[in-house]
Amino acid sequence: MSLVWSGEFDLITEAIAFERKLKGWSRAKKEAVIAGHWHKLPELASRPRTRL
């Protein structure tokens, strides 16, 4: 295992909140963060709509 991304936070509570949020993200969103493509997060957050 190796460290692929790190961030700085002013408060430990902010770091913990971000880590919890990140754990729920898709692999694609996590890979965008690792690559530094923060601008892609909104498009990766949208879920495809299913037709009934």
Rank of each mutant, 00 (worst) to 15 (best):
R20V: 07
L41H: 07
A17I: 00
R51A: 06
A15R: 14
K40L: 15
F9N: 01
L3E: 15
E31H: 07
A15T: 01
E31F: 03
K21T: 10
S2T: 14
R49N: 04
W25L: 14
I34M: 10
L11G: 07
E31A: 06
W5N: 13
S6E: 15
S46F: 09
V4L: 15
E14I: 00
L44T: 07
A35W: 03
P48K: 05
K23L: 03
S46E: 11
G7H: 11
S6L: 07
E14K: 03
A32H: 08
H37P: 01
I16Y: 03
S26L: 09
W38S: 06
V4F: 10
V4M: 12
R27N: 10
R47M: 05
E8F: 05
L52Q: 03
R49C: 01
K21A: 13
A32I: 11
S26C: 08
T50H: 03
F9S: 08
E8K: 09
S6Y: 11
A15Y: 00
G7Q: 13
P48L: 03
L3H: 13
G24I: 01
L44F: 08
E19A: 12
G24Q: 05
K21C: 05
R51L: 08
E31T: 05
F9P: 07
K21F: 12
P42N: 01
D10Y: 09
G36R: 08
P48D: 08
E14S: 12
W5F: 14
K23N: 09
S6A: 13
R27G: 05
S2R: 14
I34V: 15
A45G: 15
K21W: 14
P48C: 03
K40A: 14
S2Q: 14
K29P: 00
F18P: 02
R20N: 15
S2F: 14
E8L: 10
M1Y: 11
G36S: 08
A35G: 02
E8W: 08
A32G: 05
R47V: 06
E31Y: 04
E8G: 10
L22Y: 14
S2W: 03
F18Q: 00
A17N: 02
T13M: 07
R49M: 04
L41K: 01
K29R: 13
E14C: 08
E43N: 02
W25V: 01
K23H: 04
G24V: 02
P42C: 04
K23M: 02
E43I: 07
T50W: 02
E43F: 01
E43Q: 06
H39C: 06
A15S: 09
R27H: 08
L3K: 15
F9V: 03
T50G: 01
A15H: 05
E43P: 00
V33M: 13
S46Y: 00
F18A: 04
K29E: 15
G24Y: 00
P42L: 04
R27I: 13
K21Y: 09
T13N: 07
V4K: 14
